[in-house]
């Protein structure tokens, strides 16, 4: 009898978890998003070299308009590739586990992730508008970190730690303006790959 009750409790617990958290998020998404960021970041380094700007010294904080256009296009391409990889591997994982993708938990996850990111996007656009280029990389890290912390309730709680790392890294990079690209590559590249591998191994 008490065996049955124990099983009942286990069942209740697992149903609560399954219905409120989106568990099909794939670690591979993180790994590929990280690689995309590293390639994009490397491309930006090449761009700087071509324009004869040393990002490390960053004496010329006002960049010319062509370079900024190229940077924005590169950033958008990185975003599109990273998100596509994320969606691709996540959908693949849900199909493999026979779980639906578009559920209330995945909607909650997306909404809670997107809201801080959207606000951060407006914030960074304003920075670009005022030519405060050096603040953009730290801001993207901070807003992305906060978005992950916000979305943690709706998926694996591990992403909370990724969020905290990203947000702190962003704060730290505020003290090293001009080296933002390297912090950005570390945060969006290395940390993504690192946490992607952890998630992948843990929830395979």
């Amino acid at each position: 009898m008490s065996q049955k009750h124990q099983e009942d409790l286990l069942h209740i617990r697992s149903m609560m978890e399954r219905s409120s958290r989106f568990i099909s998020l794939s670690g591979l998404s993180g790994i590929f998003a990280g690689i995309t960021a590293l390639i994009g970041g490397a491309y930006v380094c090449v761009l700087f070299e071509n324009y004869g700007i040393d990002y490390l010294t960053a004496e010329r904080r006002v960049y010319n308009i062509d370079l900024i256009k190229e940077l924005v296009v590169t950033a958008l391409l990185i975003l599109i590739f990273a998100v596509s990889f994320g969606v691709f591997f996540t959908v693949r994982k849900s199909k493999k586990n026979n779980l639906p993708v578009w559920t209330s938990s995945s909607k909650n996850l997306l909404f809670n992730l997107a809201l801080p990111l959207f606000i951060g996007g407006i914030f960074c656009t304003a920075l670009l508008y005022h030519n405060l280029i050096a603040f953009i990389a730290p801001s993207t890290l901070i807003f992305y970190g906060l978005a992950l912390i916000n979305a943690e309730k709706y998926t694996f709680s591990d992403i909370k730690y990724l969020g905290i790392s990203e947000a702190f890294l962003g704060c730290l990079s505020l003290f090293f303006l001009g080296k933002g690209l390297y912090f950005w590559m570390f945060g969006f590249g290395i940390l993504h790959v690192f946490y992607g591998i952890i998630l992948f191994k843990k929830y395979k």
């Binding site: 009942d8 209740i12 617990r13 149903m15 609560m16 219905s19 409120s20």
Partner: peptide
């Protein structure tokens, strides 16, 4: 039990 567990944590 399953129905109730799902509904208690969702709208």
């Amino acid at each position: 039990l399953g129905i109730m567990s799902v509904l208690i944590v969702n709208d």
